[in-house]
Structures are given as C-alpha cells and as structure tokens.
C-alpha cells in the first residue's frame, strides 16, 4: 500500500473512530453519575439510541426560523469534527494533523460556538438570547485561558503543532513541572466551561434561569438537534483528547509505528478516555452548580492559573538560562 493512501486510511479511520466512541464517553459519564446517585441509570449506549431516534424524527421549526437556523447544525458538527480530527489521539503524526496547529484548533472551536450562539438568536425567543449571551460571556473568558495554556506548552515545546508537542513530551525525561500542573488545571476548568458541565452549566437541566447551552438549543428538534448533540459529544471527547495529548501523551503510537505500538496506542488512549469520563462523572456529582455570575470568577481563576503557569515557566527558564 503506498504511503499516502495508508496515511489517508489511517486518518479516516481515526476520524470515524473518534466519532464512533464520542457518544459512549458521554454515556459513561452519565452512567457513573447515575450510579453515584444510587440510580441504575441508562446504558452507556443510550446516547447512540438517542441520536438514532432524533435523526429519524421530523424536524419542527419555529415560524421565524431561517436557512441559517437549518444549516447551522451541520456546520457546527462539521467544524467540531474537523477540530477533533486535528488532535492526535491513537497515534501522532496523522495525515490531517499537519493542516493546522493548536491556535487554529481553538479558533475552529470558536467558529462552531459563534455559529451556535447565532443560531440561538434566530428563532427570536427569550431563551435563545439568554443562552447565547451567557455562552459568549463564558467564551470570552475561556478562550484567552485556553490560548494561554497553548502558549505555555508552546513555550516549553517550541512548537504549536500538536503531534510535535506530544512527541516532545514523550521523549522528554519525566520531571515535575509546576507550570504544566497549573496549565493542566486551567485547561480542565476551560474544558468544563466549554462543554457545559457542572459547575458552569448543568447538561441535565431545563430549569429556565440556570441554562446556558440547553437554552441555546431549545428550539432545535429532530435531525438538527441530533447534529448538535453529536457535536456536543465530539467536543467533550475532543477536549479530553486534547488534555491527554498535552499532558499525558504516554503510550501514543508514532504514525509509522509497528502493530504492537498501535495496539498500545489504542489501548492506552481508550483507558485514559474511560478514566477521564469516570472522573468527570464523579466530579459532577460531588459539586454544586455555580450561579451564572460566579462563573466569571471561576474562569478568572482558570485564567490566573494559566497566566501563573506562563510566569513560572518564564521564571524557571530565566534562572536556568
């Protein structure tokens, strides 16, 4: 098999692999939450069934909804999927990884978010506006924090390309880096905000005044809702993969590695993914949701941590220069 074809197949396989497992990650989190609340909870495959059900249903549109409202879900899904394809998961150095770096990745997620926030305004209802305005407020704080995390990593690794970063971390001798720890905490907070998880937002509520993400998608139904839900699952997996890639890339296979290396890569990636999903579930049941205006302080904390990470990285470079 020629090299380009092989890499094309590998890339395609990785994209569909991520798409295929994303709902299960959400499913695991929900299951863990339910068990911890002493409920049995739905099967971890319930998100797949939900998606299938939604796709088959007819779509109900508000009288005021336009072409933008109808096309946005597909665009949101596509942006998220392409962003997810940029993150090395099983193996680094996949074909698509070269197309953009982490700055572009953050911007792609931003594009999906802006489209969703716009679509929320299209039906002309009060809730769409609530969700949209809160989402953009949260994003305006989360985006700088995530870019600062990227900056920290780039300072250390000397590149903004994710496969390169992962490679750098794998080859680096294991050392304690407080700046990475802080950046990790900051990115985890950002991930919780971006994925509308507790304590920033509650993915399980339709309680009017606390909704952010759910308020935006309130008018969506049928296949459009399915697309947005799928994008949500993908985004969660994307962030977990990003955290794995930036902080715990160990075990990731090089692209041209042997079958054994790939097996290790797949195994360790899945194990880390499941672990993260379980941790998220445990975290969500053990903490209460914040008031919307506390969120800014929470994310301000993430921003502070990310900035401190850079300062400390700067300091340790400076004194060891």
């Amino acid at each position: 098999m020629p090299a380009t074809l092989q890499s094309f197949v590998a890339q395609g396989a990785q994209m569909f692999f991520v798409l295929a497992i994303a709902p299960a990650v959400t499913g695991i989190t929900r299951k863990v939450k339910a068990r911890l609340m002493r409920r049995r909870g739905p099967s971890i495959f319930q998100p797949y069934r939900d998606l299938l059900k939604l796709v088959r249903k007819e779509s109900v549109l508000a009288p005021n909804a336009t072409w933008f409202f109808r096309s946005a879900p597909y665009m949101i899904f596509a942006f998220t999927w392409v962003a997810a394809a940029l993150v090395p998961t099983l193996a680094s150095g996949l074909m698509f990884n070269w197309a953009a770096d982490v700055v572009a990745l953050v911007a792609l997620i931003g594009a999906a978010r802006a489209l969703l926030a716009l679509a929320a305004m299209d039906a002309g209802t009060a809730f769409g506006g609530i969700g949209s305005s809160r989402e953009m407020m949260i994003a305006s704080l989360a985006e700088p924090a995530s870019l600062l995390v990227a900056l920290t990593i780039a300072f250390a690794a000397g590149t903004t390309r994710l496969p390169e970063v992962a490679q750098f971390l794998i080859t680096q001798p294991l050392e304690i880096r407080v700046s990475f720890a802080l950046a990790f905490v900051a990115l985890v907070i950002v991930a919780m905000a971006e994925n509308a998880r507790i304590p920033v937002d509650n993915p399980a509520t339709h309680l009017e005044l606390t909704m952010v993400h759910e308020a935006m998608v309130l008018e969506y139904s049928g296949r459009h809702l399915a697309m947005i839900e799928a994008a949500g699952h993908l985004k969660l997996t994307l962030y977990i993969s990003l955290i794995i890639c930036l902080f715990l890339p160990f075990g990731m296979a090089p692209f041209d590695g042997s079958a054994d290396a790939w097996a290790i890569g797949i195994g360790s990636y899945l194990a880390k993914l499941v672990l993260a999903a379980v941790a998220l579930g445990v975290w969500e049941v053990s903490i209460a949701k914040m008031r919307v205006f506390r969120v800014s302080e929470f994310l301000g904390g993430a921003f502070t941590f990310a900035f401190l990470a850079i300062l400390l990285e700067f300091l340790s470079r400076e004194v060891q220069r």
């Binding site: 931003g110 802006a114 716009l118 305004m121 299209d122 039906a123 949209s132 407020m137 985006e143 700088p144």
Partner: peptide
C-alpha cells in the same frame, strides 16, 4: 486572545439583534 473572544461576542450580538430574530 481576550480581544478575539470579545470580538466574537460583540459581532454575534450585533448580527443576532440586527438580522436574526423578529
């Protein structure tokens, strides 16, 4: 980065209120 985030908020707001909705 903060400016980029705020710019998105600013123009989503402008577009949403002028062109979208009722």
């Amino acid at each position: 980065a903060l400016a980029a985030g705020l710019a998105a908020a600013c123009f989503v707001r402008a577009y949403g209120t002028v062109f979208l909705g009722r």
